[in-house]
Design a protein around this nucleic acid. Sequence first.
DNA 1: TACAATGATTGCAA
DNA 2: TTGCAATCATTGTA
Length: 338
Amino acid sequence: MDDQTRMMTGLTGLGGLQQADVGDPDSVRKQQSLGQPQQDIGDILQQIMAITDESLDEAQARKHALNCHRMKPALFSVLCEIKEKTVLSIRGVQEEDPPDPQIMRLDNMLLAEGVSGPEKGGGSAAAAAAAAAAGGSPTDSSIEHSDYRAKLAQIRQIYHSELEKYEQACSEFTNHVMNLLREQSRTRPISPKEIERMVAIIHRKFSSIQMQLKQSTCEAVMILRSRFLDARRKRRNFNKQATEVLNEYFYSHLSNPYPSEEAKEELAKKCGITVSQVSNWFGNKRIRYKKNIGKFQEEANLYAVKTAVDAANVSAQASQANSPATPNSGTSSSCYTD
DNA sequence: TACAATGATTGCAA
DNA sequence: TTGCAATCATTGTA
């Protein structure tokens, strides 16, 4: 006898139940003795399905009646037997998922940006770096810094509230499914392992939704960062003194306007800018000078004169320092050097 | 407001 | 990696 036939045989005893008769073995016996044709499994299933269309009280009553039915243990044991055979085929399906590298990357990024985890200066550091790279004044950078932080805080807040919603929905849904399964376990065999597996499936589904949230949050942070890190958007001209220092070096090394790394560092220090800004400046200057030497000739002459005067001053200072007969030499030369 | 000046970025070559 | 050349985006000025 195959499983289905056995089940059908077991279930035939439940056939022909009327709503009022359910739970009343006498009425079943009466119906059987009256020679009513055996009804097929469809009837009983229909009755079970009909429970959902009934009011809560009616459904409860019918459920109770089905649970108390004398054939219920037979049905349950048949289901157990079938289960035992089928569970072997699904056993292999259950395996532990390795941590998703994509989720790990997103988590790391959100953590580094200060969106997830404890609120700290992750994003602030990025904003400060952005301001420094742009060469903005301390006041400007602090304004942008707070602006960046405010926007990041906004993203953080949205992220956390959405995450909370997802987690709440997940736990509600999990509870709901677990209650359903527990309830169903009265009529069909459901092991705790199966409930666990179902919970894991639900969590996987919700975690894929979470991944989408994390992904869009990361995108928002990247857009915010790129907006703040794009130095072109908040370019500031170097101050006059810095430009003079750079021009002086450029025109005094016109035959080879390529400062060494040490010279770049020195110039950067003098001008209050970064080494890469010095490199940019020399790159731009060389190309623009080469393109239009005529235009820069006047400027070149000006700095040549300035350099000559400075050199003369230095040598005068040196010669005066070597002559002890000259009084107040320091005060007279300082008016040229300044 | 148009335009020149200027600092930064990008793509390519050496 | 560095420098060049082209280009972008912003600032400063007439």
